[in-house]
């Protein structure tokens, strides 16, 4: 009975999925930086155009996007420190899993703090 023709996904554990997350957030941050460099460089071309573009960001949809961006940057930053520790700290490889839980815990605390303040400012009026 031939079923699905495709192969299965490799069932890696915490290390593999943190790497997948690191990759995805890395690409997201890259595209943000691309747009960010472009919109910021507009100020040299025409300050009016710059103001118009930055002003266009002031809407709820962009606020959600910014929240997502901060979530990605925070994960990439904290997990990046974990990867450095794995490479250069003698016991890094041994405690990589514990370090991932620490990364996620710190991420949750910092992100929750940011999200509450940012979304209440952006969506809750003044």
């Amino acid at each position: 009975m031939p079923t699905k023709p495709a192969g299965t996904l490799y069932r890696g554990r915490e290390g593999m999925w943190s790497w997948v997350g690191h990759r995805i957030t890395g690409v997201v941050i890259f595209f943000f930086l691309l747009v960010h460099v472009l919109d910021t460089s507009l100020v040299r071309v025409s300050p009016e155009a710059y103001t118009a573009v930055i002003g266009a960001y002031k809407n709820p949809l962009m606020a959600l996007g910014e929240t997502g961006l901060v979530a990605a940057i925070l994960f990439h930053a904290f997990n990046g420190l974990r990867v450095i520790a794995v490479d250069f700290w003698k016991k890094g490889a041994k405690y990589q899993r514990q370090m991932l839980w620490i990364v996620l815990a710190v991420w949750l605390v910092v992100f929750a703090g940011f999200a509450i303040r940012h979304l209440s400012l952006a969506l809750g009026g003044h």
Binding site: Y10, G12, R13, E14, G15, M16, S18, W19, V83, V86, D87, A93, K94, Q96
Partner: peptide, 19 residues
């Protein structure tokens, strides 16, 4: 090496490969 630790998990001899 991107330290995904798949190798350490997979080794049937328990070698700490990533280490």
């Amino acid at each position: 090496c991107r330290t995904t630790f798949n190798c350490s998990e997979a080794c049937p001899r328990g070698i700490q490969v990533t280490q």
